[in-house]
Design a protein around this nucleic acid. Structure first.
Length: 722
DNA sequence: GAAAAGATGT
């Protein structure tokens, strides 16, 4: 713990004739807001003969606009009694800087000043809030020595402290030793299990509580429900709801909020909407929960409807709507909303900024990214760790690995997320070498990699064909780091072997993995088969995939392509019919290009752009130029129900080619053409980009669904391995 | 004199 700042007392107010009475001073304190004014009053008190008045000192401590200033006042009190220190501790523990309570505690301990048992709940609350296990344990030890550890309030505080530090077992130990437990005690312990997703333990305890004749209150149900929502556990959530109905419990606004939130987080929007409709008036929190529920489940328009109907909106609701657009892949709308917020003069907070940065990352426009970065720095968010982590990701996804690295290098503190973001950045740009170097550096810096870090590292290996390295890392993840592989890890391994044409090994992973293969796994295997022309296995994988997700467009297209190749026209016909009936088509390709601070969007065969004629003329010219160096359109990736000639046209009108031609026409100042595409780049476009980079001497950066391609002088950074 | 709950983010 570092030193505490000394008080600087301004003696600016010399023009008073007589000293005010304590009552007047107390009143002045309540109305004083600025620190300067506050210091003046403090000086008055010091010069008066009331400086020993307990109530005045306490009022000073609790009403100072600066916590560090009140801490320095406290440090100048000669021998503070519990009647001063305990309320002060409570004040600090509820403040925005609960850790300041530890300074007070340390002073009292160092100087052997009396601490009463009422001081323990606030101290433990501070430790619980900041997750300070070391401080919490020290306070626990001192409480034990002082004989306060049998006090139920101290014990409940201890439980909350251990739970706040993630120590479920220690909390339970305290709980089991308690001789008197009230509803708060039970609530905290049950909430502890809920927070960790241990619903069975929570319910078991809930039953025990009922046996102990303690009546459940709305707090318990709220925490149950919120935990169910976070864990996406609809079954338990419904069970709690049923219990509430069956027992005819009063559902107040708070509890109804919790119910709506639970249903909304579990994606059960009909149920959420039904409960929401019954609410009058609809409060801010519950409306916000509906906004985030709808947008998280791909219904951002419904979210917007509720957002627009809200009579009052606070920063949280704005943030929820902004992040809704960001996550629904409508980053432009997210940024537009952020602009609106600016116009209204509402200051964004860190969470808003994280959503905005994430929107910018999805948009992939480097100019916008630079602008956001400036905004972040200007508004004082630049020092925050989560912000910098998000900036790394943003720059990487906007195509600037250098800037991502720049942010990383400048950071004074880095956590797992910082390192993981940087590793992912390298992986995304096909720089597996640096991804692995940073993985090692991270370990040298004593930052423990987590499951997500390994996804990034394995992804880097699979996209660079580093089979042996990938195998080693996968094994060390399990054996050394004791991380149980999840679907994404197995997916990376299937990808790693599949891309390297080791399909037998890939199948072995699928067959031996302890989890049941999901859409991602079958998708990886299917993609590998597609690359290596393994029709039989590809057909098998596609069929398994369709069992899990009958509308998967990729699998349907692949299957029909396989059948077409094998001339099984009847199967092709059936599949086409099925797709028509269900209204399934390949997701429309869409490409964006940034030019002169404007973003231009193109769809396949798009003619909406105002310079469309020019663009198509340019395309003809480029195609003719490329044909001179041997280019021939490759139609392998086009949907089946077209004639060969039509396919050739469609492939030429792919959105990224249109965006590229627009870039060639207009962006002569910028040495680099940056394009963002929503789907994977097709074989033909990949070749096309390489040739253009050579023939036209331009650098082209294309972001596709998962990664970047840097084309320069006829070569792509992915080494044609993507 | 004391301890618990609902919405946003990497």
């Amino acid at each position: 713990m570092s030193a505490v700042p000394q008080p600087t007392i301004s003696l600016a107010s010399r023009n008073f004739k007589s000293l005010p009475a304590p009552k007047t001073l107390l009143k002045t304190l309540s109305s004083s807001h600025s620190l300067t004014h506050f210091k003046q009053i403090h000086a008055q008190i010091l010069r008066s003969n009331h400086s020993h008045s307990h109530s005045l000192i306490l009022k000073l401590l609790l009403s100072s606009p600066s916590l560090t200033y009140s801490l320095s006042i406290f440090f100048h009190l000669p021998h503070p009694l519990p009647s001063i220190s305990t309320p002060f501790l409570r004040h600090l523990s509820r403040s925005s800087k609960p850790e300041l309570a530890f300074f007070v505690y340390q002073r009292l301990r160092n100087e052997g000043i009396r601490i009463d048992r009422f001081a323990f709940p606030p101290l433990l609350k501070a430790a619980a809030t900041v997750g300070g296990l070391a401080e919490g344990k020290e306070i626990h030890g001192f409480g034990f020595k002082s004989g306060f550890d049998s006090d139920p309030f101290v014990q409940t505080g201890l439980m909350a402290m251990y739970l706040g530090c993630g120590r479920l077992l220690e909390a339970r130990l305290v709980f089991d030793k308690m001789s008197y437990r009230d509803i708060v005690t039970w609530s905290i312990m049950i909430d502890g299990y809920c927070q960790s997703g241990l619903f069975d333990d929570a319910l078991e305890l809930f039953e025990e509580m009922k046996s102990a004749n303690i009546e459940a209150d709305k707090f318990i149900f709220s925490s149950f429900l919120s935990a169910c929502g976070r864990a996406g556990n609809l079954d338990y959530g419904k069970a709690i709801h049923d219990y509430i109905i069956q027992n005819d419990l009063v559902v107040d606004a708070h509890l109804r909020s919790a119910l709506v939130t639970m249903y909304a987080s579990c994606g059960c929007m009909d149920m959420a909407q039904q409960l929401f409709d019954q609410m009058t008036p609809k409060n801010l929190v519950v409306s916000t929960a509906m906004v985030s529920g709808y947008s998280r489940h791909g219904r951002v328009e419904d979210a917007r409807l509720i957002f627009d109907q809200m009579l009052e909106k606070d920063l949280v609701s704005w943030s929820a709507m902004i992040s809704g657009y960001a996550e629904s892949d409508q980053p432009q709308e997210a940024l537009r909303l952020f602009n609106e917020l600016e116009v209204l003069g509402i200051r964004p907070d860190q969470v808003t900024m994280l959503s905005v940065i994430s929107a910018c990352a999805r948009l992939g426009v480097l100019d916008k990214a630079k602008w956001i970065h400036l905004f972040v720095d200007k508004n004082g968010f630049g020092g925050a760790l989560p912000i910098n982590n998000a900036l790394i990701d943003m720059y990487a996804k906007c195509g600037s690995l250098e800037r991502a690295r720049g942010v990383f290098e400048k950071m004074t503190r880095r956590n797992v997320i910082s390192w993981t973001s940087m590793i992912n950045a390298f992986a995304m740009h096909g720089d597996a070498n640096n991804a692995l170097i940073f993985f090692h550096k991270m370990k040298e810096a004593h930052i423990e990699p987590n499951g997500i870090t390994f996804v990034g590292v394995l992804y880097a290996c699979s996209h660079a064909g580093l089979v042996e390295e990938g195998k080693k890392i996968f094994t060390s993840m399990i054996n050394e780091y004791k991380i149980t592989p999840k679907h994404e890890h197995y997916g990376c391994m299937v990808d790693l072997f599949g891309r390297a044409n080791l399909l037998r090994e890939a199948v072995e992973i699928v067959e031996t993995m302890p989890l049941s293969p999901n859409v991602v796994i079958w998708g990886s295997l299917m993609a590998a088969c597609q690359i290596h022309g393994e029709t039989e296995l590809g057909e098998f994988a596609a069929k398994r995939l369709l069992e899990l997700e009958p509308d998967h467009d990729g699998a349907l297209v692949l299957l029909s392509n396989i059948y077409a190749k094998e001339r099984k026209w009847q199967d092709v016909g059936e599949l086409r019919q099925l797709m028509k009936e269900r209204g399934i088509s390949k997701e429309k390709g869409c490409s964006r290009i940034e030019l002169n601070n404007e973003v231009h969007e193109f769809l396949v065969a798009d003619r909406n752009h105002k310079q469309a004629d020019e663009i198509y003329d340019k395309l003809d010219e480029v195609v003719n130029q490329l044909k001179l160096v041997g280019y021939a359109p490759n139609t392998g990736s086009v949907l089946v129900d077209l004639e060969e000639e039509e396919k050739r046209e469609v492939v030429l009108w792919h959105s990224e080619k249109l965006a590229l031609c627009y870039g060639l026409i207009n962006g002569r100042k910028d040495p680099c053409i940056r394009i963002v595409k929503n789907l994977r780049v097709c074989e033909d476009c990949h070749t096309f980009m390489k040739l253009v980079s050579k023939v036209y001497g331009r650098e082209i950066v294309v972001r596709d669904r998962t990664r970047f391609h840097h084309y320069r002088d006829g070569v792509c950074s992915c080494k044609d391995y993507w």
